[in-house]
Simulated assay, not measured.
Amino acid sequence: MAGLRGPQSFWFRDQGKGRRPRLSRERIVAGAVELLDGEGVDGFSMRRLAARLRVGTMSLYSYVETREDVLDLALDAVMAEIAVDEDDSTPWRDALTGHLVQSRRVMRRHVWITALIGTRPMIGPTSLARSERFYAALARAGLSRPELNAAVSTLFAYVHGFVAAENVWRSRVTDADEEAELRREVKRHVAAHADRYPALARQAEVEDADSDGGFRRGLDIILDGIEARIDPGPG
Rank of each mutant, 00 (worst) to 15 (best):
R108G: 08
A164H: 06
N167A: 13
A136H: 09
V64S: 04
A95I: 06
A191F: 04
S62H: 15
F134Y: 14
G213V: 12
R133D: 02
H110V: 04
V186D: 01
A199T: 14
E178I: 14
A209G: 12
V206S: 07
E181G: 08
A176D: 14
R22M: 06
G161H: 06
G98I: 04
A137S: 15
S24F: 05
V78P: 00
L128P: 09
V33G: 10
E185T: 15
E39S: 08
A30G: 11
L53N: 09
I226L: 02
T154M: 14
D220H: 08
L182H: 03
A51K: 13
P125Q: 05
S45N: 12
A51N: 10
V186R: 05
E166G: 03
N149L: 05
A151H: 01
P121S: 12
T126L: 05
M107W: 15
A180S: 15
M1Q: 07
D14G: 05
R130W: 06
R217V: 01
L35N: 14
P121G: 02
D72M: 10
P234L: 08
A30L: 08
R172F: 03
D72F: 02
Y197K: 03
A2V: 13
A51M: 07
R188Y: 10
L128T: 15
P232K: 04
A137T: 10
L219N: 07
V84W: 05
E185Q: 14
V55L: 01
L35E: 12
D224W: 00
G6W: 04
F215T: 02
R196Q: 12
D42Q: 14
L143S: 11
D88G: 15
W92P: 01
A74L: 03
D177S: 01
T154W: 09
L23E: 06
V190S: 01
D195H: 12
A141K: 07
F156W: 09
F162W: 07
R229N: 04
P125V: 07
S59D: 15
D14V: 03
H99Q: 10
D94T: 15
R188W: 11
